[in-house]
Design a protein around this nucleic acid. Sequence first.
DNA 1: AACTCTCTCAACCGCCTTAGG
DNA 2: ACCTAAGGCGGTTGAGAGAGT
Length: 239
Amino acid sequence: MRKPCCEKEGTNKGAWSKQEDQKLIDYIKTHGEGCWRSLPKAAGLHRCGKSCRLRWINYLRPDIKRGNFEQDEEELIIKLHALLGNRWSLIAGRLPGRTDNEVKNYWNSHIRKKLIKMGIDPNNHRLNQIIPRPNPQNDSVSPAATSSGSMSNINACTKTPLKSSDDQIDHRASEAASVLEDETSGPSSRDLNLDLTIAFPEPSLQVEEGMPKLIKGSNTTAREIETNLQHLPTLVLFR
DNA sequence: AACTCTCTCAACCGCCTTAGG
DNA sequence: ACCTAAGGCGGTTGAGAGAGT
């Protein structure tokens, strides 16, 4: 049995009160970040150290940028997600003032659905849609149809059960997919004129010489990532 | 007005990684 | 080299707000 990270008894859980926030802010202002394990006791908080850390990082830190994501931030998230996957902390690291939790939530509640609606698989950023062959009997087929059942793979790739909206999309997708040919034999989606015209602010990806490695535990440098971004075939959105 | 459904996001959980002895 | 504690991360949950009926 793994030891719990802190004593469960006597610790508060759930939403933080103003007083708790203030105690945490005051303590960190005086002593700085770190030593999360011992912080709650020292600060007079009945909270788990991890909870304090999370509260500070995700909410109380003075440099946090709150409010809606801007268009360029959203585009950057999509682009970085295409390359890094669900490495939220890495992605958030490229968005000043944003936290990994915020980016993750925004991805799950907004971007993911948006991509699905656009016929893009949010897991691999590939287009799901193909143009159905002209067929008078199937004129009503949605153009957002998927190929090779890849839309249903979206959910196969995630542990979370389908929510109702996704369910509907998935249902429509598989319905449509059933009347369409496999991507490999049909016209390639790459032939589509999918100029979605989302301009990407290139400067935000500029990489300085000698920049530290971006991915923990790997040899991938920021420059390599930038190169990969340029060659990534899945990033149709930003071509 | 009351109820139900859906969505958002703060917070928690547990695993993995890292640092220090 | 190994062990342990602490930090960090991504996945998941659930409360609350807002929309719909």
